[in-house]
Structures are given as C-alpha cells and as structure tokens.
C-alpha cells in the first residue's frame, strides 16, 4: 500500500499514523507540505532515516522545487514527478493521510 502524506511532520500527526499503521515494505510518498519530512539537517531527519529503514520514501519533485528545498533532501530519498506518482498509484493501493 502506498501511503500519501501531504502535511508537514511539524504540524500534523500524519507521519505518526503512517509509522504506526504502514506495514514494513509499504512505500511512502511525501508531497505538498509532506516533503518537509525529508529535509536534511532538520529535527525530523533522524525519524525519516529510521522510517527509511522500513519503507521506500518518495518525494514529489514539483513540491520540493516550489518550496526551495530540492537541494536539501536526505540521502536515499527517491525523487519522482507526477508521472512517477501515477506509476506508484498504479502499482499500489493508496491511503491518503491528510
């Protein structure tokens, strides 16, 4: 199952829910304000790295660019565009944690 997260981890408990309910191996896509979760050098970095031990973490390029943090991603996060988002949604059922 693909878990969609569109809220900043500093403002919302969405990531807590995903961590709690997502099975090991289920991919996570960060988009909209969710992309802030994957920023290097930030308070959430250690958490996202832990999460990346159990899940593939994708971030939506368009939303990264819009927020000026494209060059600040934690290593190992996979950047995709909307076409890639569609591919992920084709391969997985999706759960929207807003």
């Amino acid at each position: 199952m693909l878990h969609l997260v569109n809220k900043s981890p500093y403002a919302s408990s969405c990531m807590d829910s995903v961590e709690k309910y997502a099975h090991k191996g289920s991919p996570i896509l960060l988009f909209e304000d969710g992309v802030y979760a994957a920023m290097a050098g930030a308070a959430f970095e250690s958490r996202i790295k832990e999460i990346m031990g159990d899940h593939e973490v994708y971030v939506l390029k368009e939303d990264l660019a819009a927020r000026g943090i494209a060059d600040r991603m934690v290593e190992g996060v996979k950047e995709i565009d909307y076409a890639g988002f569609v591919d992920l949604a084709e391969q997985n059922k999706t759960a929207s944690w807003s």
Partner: peptide, 12 residues
C-alpha cells in the same frame, strides 16, 4: 494544495 495536486495527478 489538494485540488492542484489532484489536477496534476489526473492530467499525468
């Protein structure tokens, strides 16, 4: 941003 995201997703 949800409507914008949905639009871009639908288009893609």
């Amino acid at each position: 941003e949800s409507s914008d995201s949905a639009y871009h997703f639908t288009k893609a």
